[in-house]
Design a protein around this nucleic acid. Structure first.
Lengths: 213, 213
DNA sequence: GAGATATTAGCACGACCGTTCGTGCAGTTT
DNA sequence: AAACTGCACGAACGGTCGTGCTAATATCTC
């Protein structure tokens, strides 16, 4: 009972699982979840194929675990850092900047993990697609929330539709990521920065709001 | 000499190549270019694996041919239909509407072919990535051209940056496609329609321009 | 210590992969 | 009619895939 949390065996297992997933999110962000192969992961990490397999039970479970791992990394890289900026418009802006930095810094080597794998699975019904849809919904909701808070706080015009605005902001972010990765340029990020500000200013109650400096 | 164009053998060959590519673009738009397998195409079409292979010479050449085929389909579905609408702002708007209709109608069963496969290959250098980058550049240039024409015609404000505006428009289009496919909804398309108009109006010299009705 | 338990290794399986080869056949040329 | 060309076929190659087994090896409980 006392050893339930200190069992060295399961601890070791979790550690290798983590190692596998660390590698898996990297591969998947570049080549997709389908390119994840158990044998390749095993070779890369000096493990046996059956060892990797045993840690997940099936390829689909490996894919789902990879999505969950990426979700944690995304949250840590994008959402958590803005927790201490004031809610409302400042936080909305911070979220966008944080996302841009996340893509630019290649937190995942292939750019945004979710852009890659959502495109891969969006037309393929199944548990993986469902998990990804959930991630997308939550991220979207996070942005919408901050915009709604900004509106109720009076920083955005009352007739602003937070859903529409969030859609536009996210569209700019995703497209910046996509074009920057595809053409190996920085320009899309600069463009996105300008456009985000313009979109927010267009809906701001006070266009000279210091949060949009 | 006279028979150069009536050789029934090469004609038959081209026909099977076309059949293969018809199937290939469909598969690739849903599952990606990597999911194209020569054996699967052969089985689906009642051909032999080696027959399909011989028609392309390598898997990569099959992928490139698939991209070229998709490019033609895209041009026919999106660009060609707007050739008879007047250049400038009307054509820019028509291009966007045409793109939206192309995605909505599932000209490719998995939504926009290029959204799918660009996400798949954007971080993987090679001939396929290069070909896709070319497609993206050309589409982007098409939109920019129409916006630049609109500006020189006086329909857009002189300080409008056609590149920025094209980026924003394309961002809205791509995101509508992505979300509509992922969540199996129509709402993203409606949102995109509204946002496109708002973006264009914001840059229009005359916000009441009949082209933006 | 002995014994229970959880993680890893080794090995084999059937299926599918891209690719190559030799062959048959339909159409063209002479 | 004979020689040639181009497409498609079937069989087979070496590899890799995901997935089952059965040991071997750590770690915990007693």
């Amino acid at each position: 009972m006392a050893g339930a949390t200190t069992d060295g065996r399961v601890l070791r297992g979790e550690e290798t699982r983590r190692a596998v997933l660390r590698r898996a999110v990297g591969i998947a962000s570049v080549e997709g979840l389908d390119a994840l192969s158990i044998g390749r992961l095993a070779t890369d990490l000096g493990l046996s194929k059956s060892g990797v397999f045993a840690g997940f039970g099936s390829k689909e479970e490996l894919q789902l675990a990879t999505v969950r791992a990426a979700r944690r990394i995304f949250a840590d890289a994008v959402v958590t850092p803005v927790a201490d900026t004031p809610p409302g418009l400042p936080r909305a802006r911070a979220l966008c900047e944080s996302w841009l930095a996340y893509s630019r810094a290649r937190v995942f080597p292939g750019g945004c993990f979710f852009h890659q794998v959502i495109a891969e699975f969006d037309a393929r019904p199944g548990p993986v697609r469902d998990a990804l849809a959930d991630c997308a919904r939550q991220w979207h909701a996070t942005v919408v929330e901050s915009l709604a808070a900004a509106r109720t706080a009076g920083a955005l015009r009352p007739d602003t539709d937070p859903d529409d605005l969030a859609f536009a902001l996210i569209a700019v972010l995703e497209t910046a990521n996509s074009q920057a990765v595809l053409h190996e340029e920085d320009i899309p990020y600069q463009r996105a920065g300008r456009l985000l500000l313009r979109l927010l200013r267009a809906e701001a109650a006070d266009p000279a709001d210091p949060a949009l400096a």
